[in-house]
Design a protein around this nucleic acid. Structure first.
Length: 556
RNA sequence: UGACCCAUGGUGUAACGGUAGCACUGCAGAUUUUGGUUCUGCCUGUCAAGGUUCGAAUCCUUGUGGGUCAACCA
């Protein structure tokens, strides 16, 4: 193991045992097998981290394999995005990029073998007929009238299917197992269907395509995958997975199932995510509110924070709902260590320092108190500033440490000021504060002897640049939006999940940042530069707010 | 009412027959020129009932609760 871990999850335990027993000569080989019909999301990240992580820990390898057996929903657009996302997360599959479709010839041979062994037959029944003969979970199914065709007839029919002699839907190839099995999947599952569809890799070569159960496990075997890790909903498939290995006499990969990730206030379902995109509820797959890898990247999540998250949530078999707060904790933890602290005012009030007569000066600021190597910078200061509106209250509650009439506050990295005058417009809204500053209270050389409880951020009005901020809230208002029997997840969409602030003021140095860069807006939160930024107007996405014990205290 | 799977604080996850631990959350305090960070302390848990055992979260039985399965999707 790369790191000494105090305990192994159940999959690691199985692998450790297998190695100890010399199974597959101690070799470990996993695979990440996405279907290229959608973008990767946080749930996939868990699987990616598991598969690549476990292989790395046991000196094994991981393949990237596209499970592309259904040409009507799959495309290279998705292939490209998946590769990009896996790479971005920090994993490397080397030259082991595979496609189930690469094995179509092999699968066809496997099917022929099954037919020859009397273990598969061509069925002319309609899909409705097959469904009705399937029985129900509590009632056994009935044999198809075509079940006992001869090997020769099946062979020629199946060849005819391959040759395109039959219409789509008119025939399927089925495994001949047991129509009364208590496991529905063993009731003569369909393994090949006719589809006159163009495949993103094999083009028009095939008009028959294998089903998942006749492709996934077989691909595992061909690649000599030792441990095939998948989610719980495939548990019932395992007997079938093993049946094919036994009957086909191929490499015995072992399927092990773990519980998929569920995140509170979030949906993690490709189909439903697609719906959010198609219905325009979000701006696209990379909308920063989406739990997709691209969405999270645009939001400002780091690969490391996602990997740490995947590690923290653990691997087990029980259903779970992870508190989205844990994800937020992980990104704060990472960003805290690596981002510079910069000043930005999101909702400005003007502060005029009436006794400031120096014109301007520059204040030195540490870039990141958690990382000395980040250095220092100079911030322009002047007699006209902006501060954030919630850093002033005319009638503050007890324990309010910020600015109030007659009160004093420290301007971060600058002087202590005292509020002398509150100027309001005709509606009574505070528009300007007239203050005085104490020249001998300058940060780093303070001889004033003044003690203040609060320190607030600011920007110099004449030096600040305008920018846009996008503040995000959870996309759903229900903890588990897609588990309600009577209601659609769309009923729980949060109408206020995106708040755009058109005009914020940021210190000029922020205009040196590039798309994707992360920064902490002091006392506000972590933000990252959005791709919509222009050189005249930058756009900042709020990744996550800072913990705010003042806000929390006032809620109660 | 068939088969398979699961059950440990609010949420996750450990403990592999021998002191129920860790993380998040929550609460209290210390430090702090970010009401951030950091540090300290605290609260809360083995689904139930039987059985095996000197000893059970762990093994057995029976319940209870939850999940998955009836696409020519994966």
């Amino acid at each position: 193991m790369s790191d000494k871990k105090e305990s192994l999850n159940f999959i690691e335990q199985i692998i450790a045992e297998d190695i100890e027993n010399g199974k597959h000569s101690g070799r470990v080989h996993t695979r990440f097998p996405p279907e290229p019909n959608g973008y990767l999301h946080i749930g996939h990240a868990k699987s990616i981290c598991l598969n690549f992580g476990v292989a790395e820990d046991f000196n094994g390898l991981t393949n990237l394999r596209f499970d592309d057996t259904n040409p009507v929903t799959e495309s290279t657009e998705y292939v490209d995005s998946i590769k990009e996302d896996v790479k971005w997360l920090g994993f490397d599959w080397g030259d082991r990029e595979y496609y189930s479709s690469d094995y179509f010839d092999k699968f066809y041979e496997y099917a022929i073998k099954l037919i020859k062994d009397g273990l598969a037959y061509v069925d002319d029944s309609t899909s409705e007929e097959i469904a009705s003969m399937k029985g129900t979970p509590t009632k056994p199914g009935a044999d198809s009238p075509y079940r006992n065709r001869s090997v020769e007839e099946n062979l020629s029919l199946f060849e005819g299917m391959k040759a395109g002699q039959y219409e789509e839907g008119s025939k399927v190839l089925r495994a001949k197992i047991d129509m009364s099995s208590p496991n529905m999947l063993m009731r003569d599952p369909v393994i090949y269907r006719i589809k006159f569809a163009h495949h993103h890799r094999t083009g028009d070569k095939w008009c028959i395509y294998p089903m998942y159960d006749f492709a996934h496990g077989q691909s595992d075997s061909i690649e000599e995958i030792t441990h095939s890790l998948c989610t719980l909903e495939f548990e019932n498939h395992r007997p079938l997975y093993n049946w094919f290995i036994e009957k086909l006499e191929i490499f015995p990969s072992r399927q092990i199932e773990f519980a998929r990730l569920n995140l509170s206030y979030t949906i993690v379902s490709k189909r439903k995510l697609l719906q959010l995109v198609n219905e325009g509820i979000v701006s696209g797959w990379d909308d920063p509110r989406m739990p997709t890898i691209r969405g999270m990247r645009r939001r400002g999540y780091t690969p490391k924070s996602i990997r740490n998250f995947a590690e923290r949530v653990g691997i087990a078999k029980r259903d779970n709902i992870i508190d989205v707060g844990l994800l937020e904790f992980m990104v704060r933890e990472d960003l805290n260590k690596v981002t510079n602290r910069m000043m930005a005012v999101l909702d400005p009030i003007k502060v005029v320092i009436t006794n400031y007569d120096k014109g301007e000066e520059f204040m030195e600021s540490v870039n990141n108190p958690e990382d000395e190597s980040a250095g220092v910078r100079q911030i322009p200061f002047s007699g006209e500033l902006y501060i954030d509106s919630d850093d002033f209250m005319e009638e503050p509650p007890k324990k309010y440490f910020r600015l109030k009439p007659g009160g004093m506050v420290r301007l971060k990295n600058a002087y202590i000021i005292q509020c002398e005058d509150v100027i309001k417009d005709s509606e009574g809204k505070v528009t300007q504060l007239n203050c005085v500053y104490f020249p001998d209270s300058k940060s780093g050389e303070d001889t004033s002897g003044l003690k203040v409880k609060g320190t607030i951020h600011w920007v110099s009005a004449n030096h600040a640049k305008e920018a846009e901020a996008r503040i995000y809230d959870r996309l759903f208002m229900d903890e588990s939006p897609d588990t309600h029997k009577e209601k659609s997840f769309l009923d729980f969409v949060n109408p206020n999940s995106l708040q755009i602030i058109n005009k914020i003021f940021v210190e000029p140095a922020l205009y040196n940042y590039s798309v994707g860069d992360s920064v902490q807006f002091l006392r506000k939160g972590y933000f990252c530069v959005d791709k919509d930024s222009t050189k005249d107007k930058m756009v900042f996405n709020q990744t996550v707010g800072l913990r705010d014990s003042w806000a929390k205290m006032n809620k109660n």
